[in-house]
Amino acid sequence: MPYVFLGLAIVAEVLGTSLLKTTDGFTRLWPTMACLVAYAGAFFALALAIQQGLKVGVGYAVWSGLGTTLIVVIGALFLGESITVPKAVGVALVIAGVVVLNLGGAH
């Protein structure tokens, strides 16, 4: 069950981050509200995952690592951002770090 909550936390965080551009610097009310609600949902779901037994370090690493990776992909596919070699290497290092953390007996 903690991984279900972790998955929900990742989806909510990616949604909130994807909405950031539409807030226009938090000057547009409804996009700002949607963004903040998504972030609140992300933290709530992450807290539930940790309450259900997920280790904080593992939960946060997976949440932030997958969130970062998904945002880079969404940026490239839908927001007109380029994927450069340094950006791809950075994302690969983030993913590698999450994998090493999980394989290293962090849970």
Score class of each variant (00 low, 15 high):
L77I: 01
V73S: 10
G65V: 04
Y3L: 11
Q52P: 02
A106R: 12
V98K: 03
L36M: 14
R28M: 00
L101D: 09
I83L: 15
Y60Q: 07
V99H: 08
F5N: 07
A34I: 00
A9T: 00
G67I: 02
V72T: 05
V89F: 10
A92Y: 10
D24L: 02
M33P: 04
A40C: 06
L20N: 15
L36P: 01
T22G: 04
V100H: 14
L19S: 09
A88M: 09
N102W: 06
A38I: 02
T22K: 15
V85S: 07
A61N: 01
K87P: 00
G53D: 14
G41H: 02
V14Q: 03
Y3T: 09
F44R: 06
V85P: 06
V94H: 09
V85Y: 04
Y60G: 08
V62P: 07
L8K: 02
L36N: 08
L101W: 08
G67D: 12
E81N: 05
A47R: 01
M1G: 09
T22L: 14
T27R: 09
V37E: 02
G75M: 11
L79R: 15
G67Q: 06
T27Q: 12
A40Q: 00
L19P: 04
L20S: 14
L6K: 11
T84Y: 03
V73W: 09
V11K: 01
V62R: 00
T32E: 14
V14C: 01
I83S: 11
G16D: 13
V56P: 15
I95P: 06
E13D: 13
V100N: 12
V99S: 07
V58H: 05
Q52E: 14
